[in-house]
Design a protein around this nucleic acid. Sequence first.
DNA 1: AGGATAGGCAAGTGTTCACTTGCCTATCAA
DNA 2: TTGATAGGCAAGTGAACACTTGCCTATCCT
Lengths: 103, 103
Amino acid sequence: MADVLFKALADPTRRTILDELAEKSGQTLFEICSRLSTRHRLGISRQAVSQHLAVLEAAGLVETRREGRCKFHDLNTAPLRRITERWPTPDTPDTPEPEKSTP
Amino acid sequence: MADVLFKALADPTRRTILDELAEKSGQTLFEICSRLSTRHRLGISRQAVSQHLAVLEAAGLVETRREGRCKFHDLNTAPLRRITERWPTPDTPDTPEPEKSTP
DNA sequence: AGGATAGGCAAGTGTTCACTTGCCTATCAA
DNA sequence: TTGATAGGCAAGTGAACACTTGCCTATCCT
């Protein structure tokens, strides 16, 4: 369950892909490839990026929509919230209440 | 930099250790070992747990303090906040303000 | 139809990683 | 001092993983 999420975040290339999708939503596979190459100096094959996107999609971090022969990718940050919810910090509760107990 | 943090979170055993430290702070290595064995049915050697704790400490997720021959481990959730800060959600800003814009 | 664009499937390879085994050091109690 | 407890260091092994290479399918344009 949570395994795929953390495994997906474990790779630095995948995190860079999330950065790119956060900056520009709805990119295609080739668009991500060229931006990884030009902006991040990542010499990586198209298939490698495709596999990374599959992992990110399995983790729920990326959602896709097809239009013809193009496949657009969108970032979904919702699964990230489960991380801070699992180990909540006393100062920052995951269910914030408008109440002050520790001044 | 962030690599050690995400690599540390990638392993399910390490996440279970964080769960245990979140429940009971200041546990020793042997205490963690026995709780992993009895409460989580994890048949794992003491050295394996020690290596996991070293990874978690390198990521800043676990802080240690020595007293004689005992070493106590404490959870530090501060590095986890960098995750949600890296990919902020429009609905949940990382700097929450007491204001309602989307009812 | 035919080429070009956008993407998918599958096997092979090298590296990283989790875990074990074996031995060693340091502190505490008798 | 001797034995027991708490932990550390280092090499070795097997499996998971990132990446490549090669080929195949589907859509769009002329």
